[in-house]
Amino acid sequence: MAWFRRGKKGIKAAVDKKDMPQGVWLKCRECTEILYRPELEKSHWVCQKCGYHFRISSRQYFQLLFDEGSFVEEDAGLRPSDPLHFRDSKKYKDRIVAAQTKTGLDDAIVSGRATVDGIPVSIAALDFSFMGGSMGSVVGERIARAAQRAIDARRGLITLSASGGARMQEGILSLMQMAKTSAMLAKLAEERLPHISILTDPTTGGVTASFASLGDVILAEPKALVGFAGPRVIRETINQELPEGFQRSEFLEAHGFVDRVVHRRDLNRTLATVLAFFGDAPMPTGRLRRRQDDH
C-alpha cells in the first residue's frame, strides 16, 4: 500500500492552484479587480472591492476560526480505498494519488479538535480542492468519528462544508455516508450537544442533503452556492434560465434554511457567541458586527 502514503510528513497548506493563483497580483473572480496578495491575505481572502470570498482550505479556516495553535488533528490514519475498482478515463486509485499529491491531504476532509475563545469543539472540515470536496467513505467515517469524539468529550461539533456532493467513484457506499453522518448527528442531538454547520462555496448534493443541513445553527458565507441539485442539472431539467441569486446563501437565508449569512471576518465571533450560548462560557458582549438587515 505504499502508493497511499504521503510523500512528505507535516502540514502543507491545501491550496487549489486554480482558485489561488500564484504571484503578487491577483484578479478577483467576481469583479475582476486586480488585488494585491498581501492585502488579500490580511482580509482572509475576501475581495476588498466586492466582498467576493475566495475559496480557501480547511487549514486556512482553522487559522481563522480557532484559538492559535489549538487545532489537533484526529483520525488522521484513514485513507480512501477503491471498493468498486472504479475506472472511467482514469482509475479512481490514480485520481486519489493525484489529489493527494496536489493537496497534501489524504482525502477531502481534515478533522480533529480545537478551541474557539477557549471553548473546546470537535471539527470536521471539507476541502473542495480534493476531488471537489466529495464525500466518500473516509469523509463519512471521519465526520462520524468527530461526532463520537464530541459525545465522549462532551463538546460541540462544527462541520465546515465545501463539496460537490457524494463521491461517485465509491458508488453506493458514498450514498450511505449521508445516512451514516446523519445518524451520528441524531445521536449527538440526543446527547444535547450542539452541531454548528458552516456552509461555504460551494456546498451541494449529498453533503447539503445530509449533515450540512442538520446544524442546530447553520451559518453560510456570503454568496456561497448552496443547494441540492447543481444549477446545471436544474437548468437542463426545467429548460429555462435560473433567477439571479438562486441557490446563493442569501437565497437560503430568505427561504429559511440558513440561520445567518456571515462574512468570513465575523465567523470566529459568531461561532464563539453560539458556542457560549450552548455551554457554560459567558456570552461575548458588544463585539458582533450587526448586519444592515438585522433587527
Binding site: 497511499f4 490514519g77 457506499l173 445516512a179
Partner: peptide, 12 residues
C-alpha cells in the same frame, strides 16, 4: 448498521 457502511484503509 449505518456506521458500518464504508470502505477505507486505517493505518494501511
Amino acid at each position: 448498521r449505518f456506521l458500518a457502511m464504508g470502505s477505507y484503509l486505517e493505518d494501511g
